[in-house]
């Protein structure tokens, strides 16, 4: 039973991270119908920025708490800036091109960003500093769920609630929903669609960056390639929940995280990624619209 609980929490932790990254996929897909292949790379850049800023600050002797906050902010800001720029360069000129074009452009961007970080930084694994301290009140449960795991799960839940609030209540959130329903109509009633798309990319990227810092402090190391696998898994989560649906992405993230955790715990740890990909293939075959997604009807 103890082992079960341990696996359960480790699954929740993984799931939270997948959910955070999946939100970026699902929001972008909901608005412009594009799989943003470079999203995993944005997450990787977020983790790298956090690593760099945190290292610089700790060398200059800043206190631990200020390092967490500053590195977190820096990662979110720079990741958003990258997301914004990627959209402007690689996707915006292709808004009316055939479907395959932005997808290939996105793959190109993803390859470019990976190699950019590889060349500018390093190909080695970097040890990520332990940003999250061990809490005293978590002591009795430490063998089942670590403080870092707890922080990850709580952060994810808070971010989800904030995002839901943002999309339901604010003016720009309303504009986002309108744009995702019908872009042409939204433009006709005076919504600045380009701005809405930019905001979507910025928010999605910031969430990915938060995911990046959290998972980097959970696993303890980063390199330029982490965005690739995380990107596919988060995409799996988004599809699992129904791409385009925000609660779906969260649900999908948790389901994927738990599945992976139990499968590696009870079956075999060698095939960790195979489980995720097989799950993706199975959902797409049997329920392409996902758990909470709407059936898509193709119109002429």
């Amino acid at each position: 039973m103890d082992y079960f609980i341990e696996l359960f929490f480790s699954g929740l932790t993984r799931g939270s991270i997948y959910a955070l990254i999946a939100l970026g996929y699902t929001m972008v897909y909901g608005i412009i119908g594009l799989i943003n292949f470079a999203h995993g790379e944005i997450y990787m850049i977020g983790a790298f920025t956090a690593y760099i800023i945190a290292s610089v600050l700790s060398i200059y002797g800043f206190p631990a708490l200020s390092i967490i906050i500053l590195a977190g902010f820096a990662a979110a800001i720079w990741a958003s800036a990258y997301g914004y720029t990627v959209e402007k360069i690689a996707y915006k000129p292709l808004r009316h091109a055939p479907r395959l074009s932005p997808l290939i452009s996105a793959i190109g961007m993803s390859i470019f960003l990976q190699n950019y970080v590889l060349l500018a930084q390093t190909s080695d694994f970097l040890a990520f500093p332990e940003l999250i301290p061990d809490f005293d009140f978590m002591e009795p449960y430490a063998d089942k769920v670590g403080s870092t795991d707890m922080v990850i799960i709580v952060t994810t839940i808070v971010v989800m609630i904030a995002l839901t609030f943002f999309i339901k209540m604010t003016r720009i959130g309303k504009a986002m929903r309108a744009t995702s329903q019908d872009r042409t109509m939204a433009r006709l009633i005076g919504i600045n669609v380009d701005k809405v798309i930019s905001v979507t990319f910025v928010i999605g990227s910031a969430l990915a960056a938060i995911g990046g810092i959290l998972i980097a402090s959970h696993i303890g190391q980063i390199n330029f390639y982490i965005g690739f696998i995380a990107g596919i898994k988060a995409f799996t989560a988004a599809v699992l929940g129904g791409i385009g649906s925000i609660p779906g992405a969260v649900l999908g993230g948790f389901v994927l995280g738990l599945t992976e955790s139990f499968a590696t715990g009870y079956v075999s740890s060698d095939y960790e990624d195979v489980f995720a990909f097989s799950l993706l293939v199975l959902i797409l075959i049997f329920k392409p619209s996902g758990l909470l997604g709407r059936e898509e009807v193709e119109k002429v």
């Binding site: 799989i35 479907r99 997808l103 095939y271 990624d273 195979v274 797409l284 075959i285 392409p288």
Partner: peptide, 28 residues
């Protein structure tokens, strides 16, 4: 056979996943 019913962008990801599965199996 199973995946070609899917729309173009889903197909891209499934084939990507399939490629990785084959590689991981060969590795493990």
């Amino acid at each position: 056979f199973p995946v070609l019913r899917l729309r173009g962008d889903y197909l891209a990801i499934v084939t990507l996943g399939f490629g990785e599965i084959i590689r991981l199996i060969l590795e493990n």
